[in-house]
């Protein structure tokens, strides 16, 4: 089965955007992705977006852009068999620290469920699944090199073995993220799996990767 990348959403320190659609927003001097109007990024309002942890918010933005770039109108009400595989070197470390520090500072007598729920490495992927109605397999993976390409390969194998017809794969690091939608369909193909894997190998420089994907798109 020939696997293709159908769309890509990205968030870097300088901007966010979509590759196939050749669309991006620059943050400017003082801004971050969180200062971009949400309606610019999301087709539908995301419930409780401001209450999510940072990793979930950044992941949701990149996933929203990737789905839009692939021409998929996602919605929590209209669920689709799309999987999601995510990676990130720190996993849920920031949320772990927030949760446990809060618990210790409260004399180990009060633990907050709204902080605890983000302490799973897969939590940000779960938020994405809920908000975009993704009902396929959901996995956080990390190898010793914290490789984005490895997550892509897991997504590819999920498509190849029939676990889901389309699978998102990507990585979130702090306020940077990049997600691709992978499928066996040749509509709206941005590039091949092999080309994407070659671009995603190495350090996680989102701006450089975006440039390479734009060149691959041609």
């Amino acid at each position: 089965m020939k696997l293709l990348v159908n769309g890509m959403g990205w968030v870097s320190a300088r901007g966010c955007g979509m590759v196939a659609a050749d669309w991006s927003v620059a943050f400017g001097d003082a801004g971050t992705v969180l200062s971009v109007p949400r309606e610019t990024i999301f087709l539908q309002p995301v419930k409780n977006f401001g209450r999510l942890d940072l990793a979930s918010r950044i992941t949701l933005i990149a996933v929203s852009l990737a789905l839009r770039d692939a021409g998929i109108e996602s919605s929590p009400r209209h669920k689709r068999n799309i999987g999601i595989v995510g990676t990130g070197s720190d996993g849920s470390l920031a949320a772990d620290i927030d949760y446990y520090r809060d618990y210790v500072e409260n004399g180990r007598r009060l633990s907050r469920a709204n902080l605890f729920i983000y302490t799973l490495p897969s939590s940000s992927l779960g938020e994405a699944a809920i908000h975009f109605g993704l009902t396929g397999p959901l996995l956080y993976t990390v190898d010793q090199e914290c490789s984005t390409a490895a997550a892509l390969q897991v997504a590819a194998s999920l498509v190849a073995d029939g676990s889901a017809p389309r699978v998102l794969a990507g990585r979130t690091e702090g306020e940077r993220a990049l997600y691709l939608l992978l499928s066996g369909e040749d509509e709206r193909a941005l590039c091949t799996l092999d080309a994407a894997a070659a671009i995603l190998t190495g350090s996680f420089d989102v701006d450089a990767m975006v440039e390479e994907f734009a060149r691959a798109r041609g």
Binding site: P121, S122, G126, Y140, V142, D143, Q144, A150, V154, S157
Partner: peptide
């Protein structure tokens, strides 16, 4: 080498599936 697979309380059954 190898890889971590984490999928909440399905982690090891997901790893076996993989």
């Amino acid at each position: 080498g190898g890889m971590v697979v984490s999928a909440a309380c399905t982690s090891s059954s997901a790893a076996v599936a993989r």
